[in-house]
Design a protein around this nucleic acid. Structure first.
Lengths: 332, 332
DNA sequence: TTGTAAGCGTTATCAT
DNA sequence: ATGATAACGCTTACAA
C-alpha cells in the first residue's frame, strides 16, 4: 500500500480511502490510485485488515459428517449464501471426536472467525457455558433441531410434526403395525422423530409397542442390522419408518436380498430426501428438508447477529412429505 | 497479551516466548505466565500473528460440487489430514461459475491462505498464468487428473489404466459390444477414461465404434438420458462402462423401469465407488479411488511446498477395481 | 534470562 | 480533499 501511495504520489491513507470508495476523495486521485493499484498488481492484506477492523468475514461451519449428503448438500448452500453476503466459510469436520468442535469453536475468541454455524445437536462446551451465562454469541444452529427455549439461536423444521406426517401417510395406506428404526440416542432429532411416530400412532389408536421400536442409527449399517433382526424375529411389521434415508437404504437392501418385496411385503419410509432416494429401487418415500432455505435464513440471521447484535430467535421453516413407491399398500 | 504481561509481572515479549515454548525462558516465569494466561482466559489473536508471521495456516480447497459424494468424501479426508498437520481448511465451492475460483484463488496473494488444493481440472487463470511463467506456487491438484508435464503439482491415479481395467473385466465376462457413457467434455478425466475404454477394446480386437460412444456427463440425469437413447436405438449393447457411479445410477434406474434386467440384459460398470454403489440394486461394479491416501499425500505435499519450497512433482497412487453384480455375464 | 523497540499492512482520527 | 500519526496484537532482533 505504501508502494501504491508512492506510485500515485499520494499518502497511504488516501490510497486506503480511495480503494474503499469512501466519500472525501477527488475523482482525479481516485483514478490515479486505481491505476497505480492495477499496475502494481496490488492485493490487500487480509490479516492487516482483519486486525485493524477486528473482524475476519469468515464463518465457521461445524459438520459432523461430510460424507453424509444431508450435510454436504447443506454446506453447498451455506457456502453459496455466505459468499453472496460477503463471508467466506471455514469448515470444521468434527466427526465423532468430541474435542475437535471445542478447539475449533475457540477460533471465535481468537478473532479467526466472526460466527459459527452448528449443524449437529452437539454444542461446544465453551460456547454452551457462555450462552448459559446469558452471553449473546454469534452462533446459529441449523439442520439439527434445538430444544425450544434452550437459549441458542436456530433455524429448523418441526421434526416431530414431520415424522408424524410420515406415519399418518403410512396409516392412510392401510398399514397398522408400523415399526420405527430410531436414530442415534446422542442426537436430539432421534427423540423428536420417535415422538412423532408415537403421536401419530396414538392419534390412530394404534399401539406403539416397545417391540415395534428398534434402536438404530443414521448409517447404512444400522439399517442392515435392524433388517436382520426383523427377519429373525418372526412376522414382519406392515411398515417401518426409518430415522433417515441412509438407514432406510441399508434396511431395504438387506430385506431385498432376503427376498422380501417392498412395499408388497413391508412398506418403508425415510427422512431427508437424499439425491439417491429417487433412484433407489423402489423409490423411497421421505421428508424433504428445505436445505436451500435453511442455509439462506441461517446465514442471513448469523450475519445480523454479528453485525447488528440481533435478538436470539428460533425460526421454523417448512418441510415437505415426498411420497414414492416404497410406502405403498401391502399385497401379501 | 499486554494484560497477561502485567498480570504475570513480565514483559509482552516474555509472554510471547513463554507461550511459544521457546528456549531462553526460566521455568518459574513460564509457569507464572501459563497461570496468568489461564486465569485471564487468554486467546491469541490469529490476525496479529498471521500479519507478523506472514502466514495464515489456512489452506483453500476448490470444490466444484459438494453435493457429489466423490468430492465431499475427499474433503472429509483432506480436512482430517490438514487438521493433524496444523492447518485449517477453507472451502471454496466453485460450482459452474468460472469467476469464483479466480476470486477465491486470489486469496493466495492477499495472504489469506497459504496454499491451494485443486480438485477439478479447472485451474484459476491467475494461477495458471504464473505457473506458466515458471513461478513456483503452493498449489496441488488431486482427485482430478492433470496432463503429465503440465507444470502443476498433482496427486492422481492412472485414469486411463483404471478405465481399461474395467473394460477388460467386462470383456472377461464375455461382453463384446461394450458402450461408453462419456463424462463432460470440459473435464480432462472424461477423455482419459474414454481412452482407457478405447485401449482395452483395441487390445481385444473389438471395434470401439462411434455408435458405442455416448456423450453424457457426471449427473444422474445424464445417465437417464443415455438410457433413453439406448432404449430408442434398437438392440442394446452387451455392456456399458459409465464415466462415473452417479451417471450409472441414473442409467440403471431408467433401464430397470423399462423392464431391462441388469446384468442379464446389459451389464453396467461405473467409476468412483460411492457409498451407495454397494447397496444399489444390483450392486455396482466400479473403481475405488484411494481418497484417504490422496488426501494424505496431497496435503503433506502441499505442506512441503509451502514450508520447504519442495520441487513440483506428479505423484501416482493406486486404484482398485471393485467387482460386483452389475457387470456379470448376459443371460438373454 | 528478560526487556525494549521496531515492524507486519491496514484504517480511523484529527489536523491541515 | 489530503496527510500525519496512532493503533490493532503479535514476534523477534538486539540490548541489557
Amino acid at each position: 500500500m505504501a508502494d501504491i501511495a508512492r506510485l500515485a504520489g499520494v499518502s497511504a491513507s488516501t490510497v486506503s480511502r480511495s480503494l474503499a470508495g469512501l466519500p472525501p476523495i477527488s475523482e482525479e486521485t481516485r483514478i490515479r490510485v486505481e491505476r497505480a493499484a492495477q499496475q502494481a498488481g496490488y492485493k490487500i492484506n487480509r490479516h492487516a485488515r482483519s486486525l485493524r477492523l477486528q473482524r475476519s468475514a469468515i464463518l465457521l461451519v461445524l459438520i459432523p459428517d461430510l460424507a453424509n449428503q444431508n450435510y454436504s448438500d447443506l454446506l453447498k448452500n451455506l457456502d453459496k449464501v455466505a459468499f453472496e453476503l460477503g463471508y467466506g466459510l471455514m469448515i470444521g469436520h468434527t466427526g465423532t471426536d468430541l474435542e475437535r468442535p471445542d478447539r475449533l469453536a475457540d477460533e471465535l475468541f481468537t478473532g479467526g472467525i466472526d460466527g459459527i454455524l452448528l449443524t449437529s445437536s452437539y454444542c461446544p462446551s465453551r460456547i454452551r457455558d457462555r450462552l448459559e451465562n446469558g452471553e449473546r454469541l454469534p452462533v446459529v444452529r441449523t439442520l439439527s433441531p434445538t430444544e425450544i427455549h434452550s437459549g441458542i439461536a436456530s433455524v429448523q423444521i418441526d421434526e416431530t410434526t414431520a415424522a408424524a406426517e410420515v406415519v399418518r401417510h403410512l396409516i392412510a395406506n392401510g398399514h397398522r403395525r408400523i415399526a420405527h428404526l430410531e436414530g442415534p440416542p446422542i442426537e436430539l432429532v432421534s427423540r423428536l422423530r420417535r415422538e412423532g411416530w408415537q403421536r401419530a400412532m396414538a392419534e390412530a389408536g394404534l399401539p406403539a409397542e416397545p417391540g415395534l421400536l428398534h434402536p438404530g442409527g443414521f448409517r447404512l449399517e444400522d439399517g442392515r442390522e435392524v433388517a436382520r433382526s426383523l427377519l429373525a424375529a418372526g412376522p414382519l411389521p406392515d411398515a417401518i419408518f426409518c430415522a433417515n434415508d441412509e438407514s432406510a437404504y441399508g434396511l431395504m437392501t438387506e430385506l431385498k436380498s432376503a427376498g422380501i418385496r417392498i412395499p408388497q411385503d413391508i412398506a418403508v419410509a425415510g427422512f431427508d430426501d437424499l439425491t439417491f432416494s429417487e433412484v433407489f429401487d423402489p423409490p423411497l418415500t421421505t421428508v424433504r428438508l428445505p436445505r436451500r432455505e435453511m442455509a439462506e435464513v441461517s446465514v442471513l440471521y448469523l450475519k445480523r447477529l454479528i453485525e447488528e447484535g440481533a435478538e436470539i430467535e428460533q425460526k421454523l421453516v417448512s418441510h415437505q412429505l415426498i411420497v414414492r413407491r416404497s410406502s405403498g399398500p401391502l399385497e401379501r
